[in-house]
């Protein structure tokens, strides 16, 4: 199937994109009244790359994705996809780009197969091509057995995968995905990630938005940290972690009864910490492990160490938790 995806994946997107970035966004701005939902962002995505916009809800990720797919007008700035100016010719852009919107947008009046077939037809495929392609993508996404079912009979994970499958109907070389795995159980999420990895292997360029640190780490070649409509920093996940995250983070699972003792201990020694639910995180000072030995005897406290991650990067850059939103 990977082979087939590769072969059918050669669309005019590739033809029009004679070298250079597949997606180019410059100083893009979107206002809702006085509020700048997207506030002058600039980034570009290279051919075959998976690029992520990582940020909490309300950061402006969805608005950016909607502007890219022509579903939302921008106030200023420019967007170019596969050499096409989205602002001037958003019809042409939608011919070459696959879009997975935040909501699955499945048609409840149709079967699984009909959802794909009619989408392909609407997108410009002949009936025969659309039928064949629908069967191909159903096979690839392991949904062949469900092709005659109503979409509302599918599980959340299957719906999401069907929505992704639908964006593959025209074999686009570039796909924009708004939060591909939000709201899915871990198993379904893993499945989606596996499938996205195959698409990447087939040379498809992907721009995705996410507020899952794991998703960004696993899938993205490069990513931007986005908050309040702005891009705060950009790089590979490793670079970002190296620049902005502590090497090591101590995590204390603290029983409610022991919480006071732990707080006092850390405050006394001027160790900075943050609390997320029942978890107290302590970042190492200059890469050294903070001295938590005094807590080892306290009942109800379990200590473990983990490496710094994108969650910490976000915290360092914005001063807030990624999961606040």
């Amino acid at each position: 199937m990977t082979e087939e995806l590769k072969q059918t994946g050669a669309t005019n997107a590739a033809a029009r994109n004679s070298g250079g970035s597949v997606i180019r966004v410059k100083k893009l701005r979107k206002l809702y009244g006085d509020l700048a939902a997207v506030d002058g962002i600039t980034f570009s995505v290279e051919p075959g790359e998976t690029y992520g916009l990582l940020g909490p809800n309300g950061a402006g990720k969805t608005t950016t994705m909607r502007m890219l797919s022509g579903l939302s007008p921008s106030n200023s700035g420019s967007i170019e996809v596969a050499g096409i100016n989205v602002v001037k010719d958003n019809r042409a852009v939608r011919e070459v780009m696959g879009v997975v919107t935040q909501h699955d947008g499945l048609d409840g009046g149709l079967t699984v197969f009909q959802n794909l077939f009619l989408f392909g037809f609407l997108a410009g495929l002949s009936r025969k091509d659309s039928k064949n392609r629908a069967n191909e993508v159903l096979e690839f996404f392991g949904l062949r057995g469900r092709s005659k079912d109503n979409t509302y009979e599918l599980s959340g994970g299957m719906k999401r995968r069907l929505a992704i499958a639908r964006s593959m109907m025209t074999s686009p070389k570039v796909i924009v995905m708004d939060e591909p795995s939000t709201g899915l159980d871990p198993q379904s999420r893993n499945r989606v990630w596996e499938e996205l990895a195959v698409l990447k292997d087939a040379g498809v360029t992907v721009l995705l938005s996410t507020h899952y640190m794991e998703e960004a780490t696993i899938l993205c070649d490069r990513l931007s940290i986005m908050d309040n409509g702005k891009i705060l920093d950009e790089g590979t996940p490793d670079q970002m972690i190296e620049h902005h995250a502590p090497k090591e983070v101590a995590q204390l699972r603290v029983a409610p009864a022991a919480l006071r003792t732990v707080r006092d201990y850390l405050t006394e020694r001027e160790i900075t910490y943050r609390e997320v639910g029942a978890l107290v995180s302590v970042t190492g000072l200059n890469g050294d492990r903070p001295d938590l030995s005094g807590l080892s005897d306290v009942e109800g406290v379990r200590t473990s160490y983990r490496a710094g991650n994108l969650e910490d990067v976000f915290l360092t850059i914005t001063g807030r938790e990624l999961r606040d939103g």
Binding site: L71, T101, G105, L106, F119, L122, A123, G124
Partner: peptide, 14 residues
Amino acid sequence: DNDVYETALTTPIT
């Protein structure tokens, strides 16, 4: 309400 038009709008439709 079910985003069927939104899905359609990801194809070259106006």
